[in-house]
Design a protein around this nucleic acid. Structure first.
Lengths: 120, 120
DNA sequence: ACCTATTTGTCCGTATGTATG
DNA sequence: CCATACATACGGACAAATAGG
């Protein structure tokens, strides 16, 4: 997977990295289950800071394209296992209910976030 | 708006700040249209780094609670309704299930955000 | 059960860029 | 033009989760 960044571009480096990886995934250059290079490695090979790469990776995680975890790295997501599918169903139910009550999505997110911290 | 953070807590400082502001908004302590303290100010008064405050602010922006812009600052967005108690049980179930599957909280949030945008 | 290496997560500090007013 | 304030990036340090021996 070849990645290059252009420091002169107005696009943030992190976004450029995310875009490059996103493309590589779309092209099938990296497949589901495969691991992306460790953030520090990629950072060094690109001549950018670790944080910058991590920001790009985290963006990809938000998009659901990779599974990013400590000690494990960035793994391209693939088929959803059964348990996860159930989670998706449950999530959709929650969203439907929330909207039926007229809550804006942000409010639902706040609620969830609050629950997460409260039950940590 | 009184904010305090606990460096000893396992909760990231940025999240603590976000939670505090979120609470202040929910309590009506700060109202729509009002500006939150500048990141640098708040950082200094809390004894934390600017980045840490900004991270919290950016999270609130993602939730749609504030409007965050260069040169202007963080302005609380419009009113939000109450009456969300019904969703709490369902939310807790979802969280329990997610954690049982071993998903990190961030991933659950990613999943939810994805669902929200997909069903928008 | 333990230890170790790997890898991301968070935070600190600093510098420079850029939009706003 | 100027001051304010967030945006991005750099670098360094330590914490925490994961995996493997």
């Amino acid at each position: 997977m070849l990645i290059r960044v252009d420091p002169a571009s107005p696009l943030p480096l992190g976004d450029q990295i995310a875009a490059a990886v996103r493309g590589a995934i779309a092209e099938g250059e990296v497949r589901a289950g495969e691991r992306l290079p460790a953030a520090r490695e990629l950072a060094e090979s690109l001549g950018v800071n670790v944080h910058t790469v991590l920001r790009g990776y985290q963006r990809l995680r938000e998009e659901g394209l990779i599974d990013l975890r400590r000690g494990r790295g960035a793994v391209v997501t693939g088929e959803r296992p059964a348990g996860r599918a159930r989670l998706v169903t449950q999530t959709r139910r929650l969203i439907t209910e929330s909207r039926r009550l007229g809550l804006p999505d942000e409010e639902l997110l706040s609620l969830i976030r609050a629950s997460l911290t409260r039950e940590a």
